[in-house]
Design a protein around this nucleic acid. Structure first.
Length: 289
DNA sequence: ATGACTGGATAGTCCAGA
């Protein structure tokens, strides 16, 4: 099963990129962020074409900012829009949606940016992350938190840590909030798969940042242990950042083995292969470079 | 270089993004 997450930076002007991407990558579950549409506008714009491709969908969109969705070809139940006791700015925004897709609880999130350190928006970001952790704490054993976390987990996840000193996305409190979320038992599956690689998911539109590969890794798939153990491939789809009218974010894609029937039995040891010590298939596309 | 680009709302430029 393939799961993808993509901050599309407005779905309406992205449609000429979105439909070919969906046809090419054929994910079973898609988490989208920054739709910048109401739910009604999303349905009017994409509803029939998604149904024709076999996707159910649920959206949480309130207007021109934010907006998140989950698309699924493997079932879509128990949809939850927003977070329990969700903080707002000042009112709650459309930044979180969750649903059960087959055996998986799936979250699609667009974490607040934070703007500048110690601003009201920064405090809102931290409060929002606590509310997300509290929601995810109620998940069953098979869950994924996917989306634009707006936090670079480590210095290796920004092109120049010194350039980000004193800026949001890299501060201790933000990383601590991410660590608190991951302390529920969630794994950063792309970093697990590419422990020493230069792997970014966002590049500023300006100054040829993508061409020079000066970016950040802020779009994450965080998977519970039971799911992380099923990961075959985990990579950033840089092809989607190339060419005309891209989003400034690239999709993140994870492939899982089929869920075991019934109880999870003893793990079969992976084949011993020095070129691929994790015993995983190689990804369908490049992770970076 | 406190820049650079893109999208939304608007009808001038401003806000937001990160």
């Amino acid at each position: 099963m393939r799961i993808a997450t993509w901050n599309v930076n407005s779905i309406r002007p992205r449609l000429p990129r979105f439909w070919p991407w969906l046809e090419q990558r054929r994910p079973d579950i898609v988490c989208l962020q920054e739709l910048k549409l109401t739910d009604a506008a999303f349905t009017g714009l994409l509803g029939d074409d998604l149904a024709a491709r076999g996707y159910q969908y649920a959206t949480h969109g309130l207007g021109q900012w934010n907006g998140v969705a989950i698309l699924s070809r493997v079932g879509l139940d128990d949809v939850e829009r927003g977070l329990p006791d969700e903080p707002g700015f000042p009112d709650p925004e459309a930044r979180a949606i969750a649903a059960t897709c087959g055996d998986l609880r799936v979250h699609s999130v667009y974490v607040p940016n934070g703007r500048t350190v110690d601003s009201d928006h920064y405090r809102y970001k931290l409060a929002w992350l606590r509310a997300l952790r509290d929601q995810a704490a109620a998940d069953g054993p098979a869950s994924v938190v996917c989306g634009d976390l707006n936090i670079a987990p480590a210095d290796a996840d920004v092109f120049d840590p010194a350039a980000y000193a004193g800026h949001t996305h890299v501060t201790g409190p933000e990383r601590a909030a991410l660590a608190d979320l991951m302390a529920l038992g969630l794994r950063d599956v792309v970093r697990d798969r590419w422990p020493n690689e230069r792997v970014f998911s966002y590049w500023d539109y300006r100054a040829g940042m993508f061409h020079r590969d000066l970016g950040m890794r802020i779009d994450l798939i965080l998977a519970s242990e039971a799911v992380a153990g099923r990961v075959d491939a985990a990579w950033i789809d840089r092809e989607a950042r190339k060419g005309k009218t891209p989003s400034d974010h690239a999709p993140v894609i994870v492939d899982l083995d089929e869920a075991p029937d019934g109880d999870i039995g003893p793990m079969v040891p992976p084949p011993s292969n020095p070129a691929n010590p994790r015993g995983r298939r190689l990804p369908q596309g490049p992770a970076s470079g």
